[in-house]
């Protein structure tokens, strides 16, 4: 059974059909790219998969369970984490608190236990403090733990956002244009990071990206969409020579 099984979903805003007949399967540990020209509907698809929008047709199954109409935080509980095209961090919180916030769903202590500072509070807080620092350590950011997130350089903010997504212990990670605004050097580092994440955390990764070198370099499979419809699927080599894709990107 695939981790993610999407069958012919679509969404209509008013009279505009932004996405239609979109299907995709993700197996554990896969690295799949979702590409297409600007305005093709890539982010809309992400928003449907993560519960921000409710698809008007089709069905989404996560580990076999129907996920249509679930709220974004419920989708997170199903094991899906995402990042955003324009980085969305908790800007005025420290790096460490950004990560700790993402551990919320793993914590159980109640308000009373928190306010009276009962043992459950100390135990769980110590536990996530350790986990959060460990996670930061994996990305060489342990020294930035007490920095305010907004004060970090751009590349690190991207990394922190991915790190925060991983803190929810997902089985699937959706990255929305992680290389946007990065220079070639940073993009190469990002490629390594993505590989590292997949191997270390054993997550399936679905990637939206414009940077063709990144996509061709790391994705095992590509799905190309244009005007909300899938126009091609397959291995990077096949996509490279696909007529429809070239047409969509270069305009005939």
């Amino acid at each position: 059974m695939p981790l993610l099984d999407v069958k012919e979903i679509g969404i209509t805003f008013g009279g505009l059909r932004a996405v239609g007949n979109f299907s995709i399967q993700l197996e554990p540990g896969e690295l799949v790219g979702l590409i297409g020209p600007n305005g093709a509907g890539k982010t809309t698809i992400f928003n449907m998969l993560t519960g921000v929008y409710k698809p008007t047709e089709g069905e989404i199954r996560i580990s076999g369970r129907l996920a249509n109409g679930k709220k974004p935080y419920q989708i997170v509980n199903e094991g899906v984490a995402r990042t955003f095209q324009n980085i969305r961090l908790f800007k005025n919180l420290t790096v460490l608190d950004n990560i700790k916030t993402a551990f919320h769903k793993d914590m159980r202590y109640s308000t009373v236990e928190a306010v009276l500072r009962l043992p459950a509070f100390w135990r769980e807080e110590a536990e996530i403090d350790r986990k959060a620092r460990e996670l930061l350590g994996l990305f060489n950011m342990e020294e930035d733990a007490d920095t305010i997130a907004a004060n970090m350089p751009y590349g690190k903010q991207r990394k922190l956002e991915i790190c925060r997504a991983l803190a929810t212990s997902p089985q699937m990670l959706f990255l929305d244009e992680p290389a946007a605004g990065m220079n070639p050097q940073e993009t190469r580092e990002l490629m390594n990071t993505i590989h590292f994440i997949r191997d270390k955390f054993k997550v399936a990764i679905l990637l939206i990206e414009h940077d063709m070198s990144l996509v061709m370099g790391i994705c095992e499979r590509l799905v190309v969409i244009d005007y909300g419809m899938i126009i091609a699927k397959g291995k990077p080599e096949e996509i490279k020579t696909n007529k429809k894709v070239i047409e969509a990107y270069l305009g005939s």
């Binding site: 955003f84 969305r88 908790f90 919320h104 925060r164 997504a165 929810t168």
Partner: peptide, 14 residues
């Protein structure tokens, strides 16, 4: 606090 900072991001981390 995370809701004040960014509601959409808060929802997206559960």
């Amino acid at each position: 606090h995370s809701i004040k900072e960014d509601e959409i991001a808060a929802e997206s981390v559960g």
